[in-house]
Design a protein around this nucleic acid. Sequence first.
DNA 1: CTATTGACCTCGGGTTACACGAAGTTGTTA
DNA 2: TAACAACTTCGTGTAACCCGAGGTCAATAG
Lengths: 133, 133
Amino acid sequence: MNYSIKQFAEMFHTTEHTLRYYTDIDLLPCQRDSGNHRIFDDRSANWMRGIIYLKNCGTPVKEIKRYFELCRLEESDENLQARYQIILKQREQAHKKLEEARTTVAYMDEKLKHYEDILTGRIPDDMNPANWS
Amino acid sequence: MNYSIKQFAEMFHTTEHTLRYYTDIDLLPCQRDSGNHRIFDDRSANWMRGIIYLKNCGTPVKEIKRYFELCRLEESDENLQARYQIILKQREQAHKKLEEARTTVAYMDEKLKHYEDILTGRIPDDMNPANWS
DNA sequence: CTATTGACCTCGGGTTACACGAAGTTGTTA
DNA sequence: TAACAACTTCGTGTAACCCGAGGTCAATAG
């Protein structure tokens, strides 16, 4: 299956700008049609998923590139170990981010509840415990 | 309680660079001592917590500033409504990020397991279902 | 058969949120 | 009294895009 840049951007909830950037820096591979338009396929989609998840871990683009290059290289033991180490580290980051996200949600939920209490007149604003509301 | 820029940076797991940046753009208020050094206190710490959590929601610095300015203004109904809307929106973002984080963790956990399977010789690499490993 | 439309292209400068380093100031130890 | 540690400002650098101008190309509308 083939996709235009627009379709591909929609599929991954990103922008055409970003996709052009990724292909320009050779992070995301793509073909070109007769009119020089980028065409993406299911293989591109797989790389794209990788990019998105690694980015969610906080991995910088350069590191993602390094990892992908390792993936395309010959399959030595060293190579596998290197890739394993990257994934191991980024997985840890993912877990940290998850914890962070949980804490943030708890805080924001409380904050919102506080506002609703004020707006429904249940408590006055100066009882705000966090000093900013 | 008072804190130097170094202590404050450690408290919030950030850098002195970032704190200088925040104070320079008037996002984070701070006092100065006789030698012109920044001093932070517990009130700064409260604002800092706000900054961190709002940032975790993905809020841009300008929006955080806007929100904080509303907090310092007079307490009209309009003002409260505006702040409420900001928190409401950012809380939603926080929930989205939490979901994202969960998905990412699941993906990375699976990826890691895959590598461990390869490295312990349980399966060959070409059985990799995701096309990149 | 032109003309407009729409989706794409490249290229260069702009933006956000910092990071970094040089050069200077200040207050405390050897 | 010298050196050090911790800070200061100021200006440039960086990452990961965003944006817009100006051009190409294929398909439809008049």
